[in-house]
Amino acid sequence: MDIKGKVWKYGSDVDTDVIIPARYLNTSVPKELAKHCMEDIDENFVDNVNDGDLIVAEDNFGCGSSREHAPLAIKAAGVSCVIANSFARIFYRNSINIGLPILECPEAVAGIETGDEVEVDVDSGVIKNLTKGQEYQAAAFPEFMQELIDAGGLVNYVKKKVGTA
């Protein structure tokens, strides 16, 4: 799966309350959630993000609440991939489960700035910074998680398991 777009870069401990504030959780429609994605830390994000853009962040991205609305909002806002030094556990799990590509790669985070044009091959974990002409290698997923990703997320995986696929 090839991904290409401009980067929105953030710092450490971006929590799920700022990714999608609780005041908007009275709906679970992804497009509605996307209208408020990141608004409490970056009011320009929603109006300027384009399909395919990437989010790059430092440590512990997605900490806090278990709300799956957070990766859903990011995905529905058009973001194609999130790259971080590390992800909070539940956000990591939720992203894999719903099929939002995420990669851990501190070298990429250190090298990439807001506005850089970046290309990602999720299968190989190769991240190319087209603006700076650099290339980084993200850590591979454990085999089981790669299976989940290949199945297109947890629901498809479970359907095969329970025989409803």
Partner: peptide, 27 residues
């Protein structure tokens, strides 16, 4: 597993209790 991050509360009883998202809850 609880689709709420503070599910870890039940660790106080010696349980492995942990927060997950909605899709994990469904599965």
């Amino acid at each position: 597993i609880g689709a709420d991050s503070h599910t870890c509360t039940y660790g106080a009883l010696g349980a492995l209790a942990t927060g997950v998202g909605s899709t994990d809850m469904a599965a």
